[in-house]
Design a protein around this nucleic acid. Structure first.
Length: 304
RNA sequence: CGCGGGGUAGAGCAGCCAGGUAGCUCGUCGGGCUCAUAACCCGGAGGUCGCGCGGUCCGAAUCCCGCCCCCGCAA
């Protein structure tokens, strides 16, 4: 069985690597074109492209895959597995693979269809999330389900949870191929009535509002970490808050009511959040203890 | 040339503008106090101040020049 793999960000590297390590015949990788990255706008290949080239798999980085149907057919793969590829597939593309196209999605479908499933699950305060493998249809994330992997969210940030889900996706990718190699799989219909959608999150939504409940504030901080990062201001400086957990405490909204090695506790509209990690503009991420020592954060300081 | 902050002890920072003793908090090591402690007291170790053995100067962490690296915003 010849497999093609479409993915772009770091998240999508682990599943690709797992398939290759398992000895499956990955004949081609499809990814987004190189994009300018960082302050210096350096043209950089996607993580998936960099990895694929490193292991000698041929790479296709179509500007628009829908305009390259013949080339896609020319790959001659039986199966396409996609994971955070970043382009919508069209009917001719789907039909280019005899065994079909399967997508690894980072949520428990039908929940959180769309662009930011991991962040949205944290933001909503879900207890569990996971990875769903589904047969790709034209409508976004609506296809029938092949398998699901669950995991607990806990107090994890988007970055931390993303790493775990990436690892789960790797396992799911391998299982998917194993199942498909045994013939037509059993698929489960999605319950449309329970479907929810999430849109792309944007930087502005990361403004912390301490008048909300501690749970909501902590969810926001963790969902936006490490990027685009939840932020607030302290004096005249902007501070990105990178990790927090709700805790006991009360006081005037936005006021630091405790600051020591254990964290920086800020009063919220309801309860308080313990900020464990933060980053001042221009600085690197700091543990709360370091911020207390070096940046002299103390009880009574105001965040807003 | 998009705007801006930064590189000083293991960590985080101050000192720089108005050159002249290497400073603060934490950590660490040793000792003391305590039933006890992340508490408190005493003492110690630890720094080529990013690089150019660059320039100016009697003297540079500090001023000037060149380079490297990190980061916030914007995109």
């Amino acid at each position: 069985m010849k497999i093609a793999y479409a993915g772009t960000p770091e998240y999508a590297v682990a599943p690709l690597k797992a398939l290759i390590d398992k000895g499956y015949d990955v004949v081609a990788v499809i990814t987004q074109p190189d994009k300018p990255v960082g302050r210096k706008r350096i043209l950089t290949p996607s993580p998936v492209k960099a990895f694929a080239q490193g292991v000698g798999v041929s790479v296709y980085d179509f500007e628009k895959i829908r305009d390259n149907v013949e080339e896609v057919k020319g790959i001659g793969a039986d199966l396409l597995i996609t994971c955070a590829y970043g382009q919508l597939l069209t009917d001719p593309i789907l039909k280019a693979f005899p065994m079909g196209v399967y997508n690894l999605h980072a949520s428990l479908l039908p929940l959180y269809r769309g662009a930011s499933p991991i962040q949205s699950a944290i933001l909503a305060g879900e207890k569990y999330t996971g990875v769903t493998v589904m047969r790709t249809e034209l409508k976004l994330d609506c296809g029938d389900i092949l398998l699901v992997k669950r995991c607990e969210i806990g107090d994890r940030t988007y970055g931390e949870l993303s790493d775990e889900l990436s690892a789960l996706s790797a396992i799911a990718a391998v299982e998917t191929v194993e199942i498909l190699s045994k013939g037509e799989p059993q698929l489960l219909l999605q319950d449309e009535a329970k479907a929810t959608f999430c849109k792309k999150i944007n930087k502005a939504d990361g403004k912390v509002d301490f008048s909300k409940s501690a749970r909501q504030v902590a969810n926001l901080i963790n969902a936006f970490s490490p990027a685009p990062a939840a932020f607030c201001s302290l004096d005249t400086a902007q501070v990105n808050l990178l990790k927090a957990t709700p805790c006991e405490g009360c006081g005037e909204v936005g006021t630091v009511i405790k600051a020591d090695k254990g964290g920086i506790v800020v009063a919220c509209g309801e309860g308080a959040v313990n900020v464990l990690s933060l980053q001042f503009a221009g600085g690197k991420p700091l543990k709360a203890a370091d911020a207390v020592n070096g940046r002299k954060i103390k009880v009574g300081d105001r965040l807003d």
